[in-house]
């Protein structure tokens, strides 16, 4: 269950940036080829936000599909299957999309103010 530590990481990254400002929504991007199970992330999210400034926040997950380029025939193809086979039969492919694992955005609770850029730790 690497989804648990990933989700804990999300909460830490956000509270590090935003302090104790209450968060209403978190938007993640989890590519279809990333190997991360979105349902597990959702399950873990509800557990790990309990007692934090993210408690009750809505979780939105964008799931970009997979896209790859074949190193043998140069064709680009779409596939959400982790076993990436080019229509030409080659498995020697470069993944162009679908591996994303990102915290895209958060929405603060109404009334919370945007942190001053100077307290945003990067």
């Amino acid at each position: 269950m690497h989804e648990l530590s990933l989700t804990q990481g999300v909460v830490e990254a956000i509270t590090d940036r935003l302090g104790d400002r209450r968060v209403a929504m978190v938007r993640l991007e989890i590519g279809k080829l990333s190997g991360v199970v979105v349902d597990s992330v959702r399950f873990c999210f509800d557990l790990v936000v309990a007692g934090t400034s993210l408690e009750g926040a809505r979780l939105e997950v964008v799931e970009p599909g997979g896209r790859a380029r074949c190193r043998d025939c140069s064709a680009e193809f779409l596939s959400d299957d982790p076993i990436l086979l080019c229509p030409c039969g080659s498995s020697d492919v470069e993944v162009l999309a679908g591996m994303e694992l990102l915290i895209k955005a958060v929405q603060l609770a109404p009334g919370e103010v945007v942190p001053d850029v100077r307290d945003v730790r990067v």
Binding site: L6, A13, A109
Partner: peptide
């Protein structure tokens, strides 16, 4: 609702 802040931070 509240303010939306773009983070674009990698999970890992």
């Amino acid at each position: 609702g509240g303010t939306v802040i773009d983070l674009e931070e990698r999970l890992l």
